[in-house]
Simulated assay, not measured.
Amino acid sequence: MFYRYGRGDEPDLQPTKNWIRRVLLYGAYLDGTRYYYSPDVFLFFFSRLLEENPDSDIHQDTVPLPREHIQKRINADGDAMELAIRILACYSLGIRHKIDLTKQLSLQQEDGGWEIGYLCRTGKTGSRLVNRGYTIALAVNAVGALLTTRALSRNGILIDEGFVESNA
């Protein structure tokens, strides 16, 4: 929000940016956080921050780290929500692969949707907040992003060197 409204360089924001960098650098998110049970959630929101602010100091200082960390998460276990946000995080960081896409498609249900996914939890009780519609929306966006990229590259319109053909 600070970057969106031109306040990303405010000195009072520096301690928060330093904390975010340390969480990423030391992998403090790997076991989840108080509010996000999955490491993929942290990486998803961090990748969104970078995607929305390509000229920011935080983008320039950290962009190699989330790429490295999200690549390590490829093919990790996860529900439909985790797979979707991992695919979208990879996509926004320029990483294209079909390993998680294949897993995502295998979880699609007969009605065309996906099971309920867990994005976050409450801090005090740890109750997971669920929304099947949000899971489906993320999954559709994730599948659409990768399949569109593949279709375009096969037609010679777009060559995306980052899409790795893999048979995992």
Rank of each mutant, 00 (worst) to 15 (best):
94 G>M: 11
94 G>K: 12
94 G>C: 11
95 I>C: 00
96 R>W: 08
96 R>Y: 10
97 H>R: 14
99 I>H: 11
99 I>N: 13
99 I>K: 12
102 T>I: 05
102 T>P: 03
103 K>D: 01
103 K>N: 08
104 Q>C: 05
104 Q>M: 14
104 Q>D: 01
105 L>A: 12
105 L>Q: 02
106 S>Q: 15
107 L>N: 11
111 D>N: 14
111 D>H: 05
112 G>V: 14
113 G>V: 09
115 E>V: 04
115 E>N: 12
116 I>N: 01
118 Y>T: 02
119 L>K: 08
119 L>H: 11
120 C>N: 06
120 C>A: 10
120 C>H: 14
120 C>V: 08
121 R>C: 11
121 R>G: 15
121 R>V: 10
122 T>A: 14
122 T>C: 12
124 K>C: 07
124 K>W: 10
125 T>S: 15
125 T>E: 15
126 G>P: 05
127 S>G: 01
127 S>Y: 00
128 R>D: 08
128 R>E: 09
128 R>M: 08
128 R>G: 04
129 L>M: 15
129 L>W: 12
129 L>T: 12
130 V>S: 08
130 V>I: 08
131 N>G: 12
132 R>D: 10
133 G>M: 06
133 G>Y: 12
134 Y>R: 01
134 Y>F: 11
134 Y>I: 02
134 Y>E: 01
135 T>D: 03
137 A>W: 00
138 L>A: 09
138 L>T: 03
141 N>K: 15
142 A>F: 03
143 V>S: 05
143 V>H: 03
144 G>P: 00
144 G>I: 06
144 G>S: 07
145 A>S: 13
145 A>F: 01
145 A>K: 09
145 A>G: 03
146 L>G: 00
146 L>Q: 02
147 L>C: 10
147 L>M: 07
148 T>R: 14
148 T>Y: 12
148 T>L: 15
148 T>A: 03
149 T>I: 07
149 T>F: 01
149 T>L: 05
149 T>V: 00
150 R>K: 09
151 A>Y: 04
151 A>F: 02
151 A>P: 00
152 L>Q: 10
152 L>W: 05
153 S>C: 07
153 S>M: 08
154 R>S: 12
154 R>M: 06
154 R>A: 06
155 N>E: 13
156 G>I: 09
156 G>M: 09
157 I>R: 14
158 L>G: 03
159 I>P: 00
160 D>Y: 05
160 D>P: 00
160 D>N: 11
160 D>F: 02
161 E>H: 08
161 E>N: 15
161 E>G: 09
162 G>I: 01
162 G>W: 04
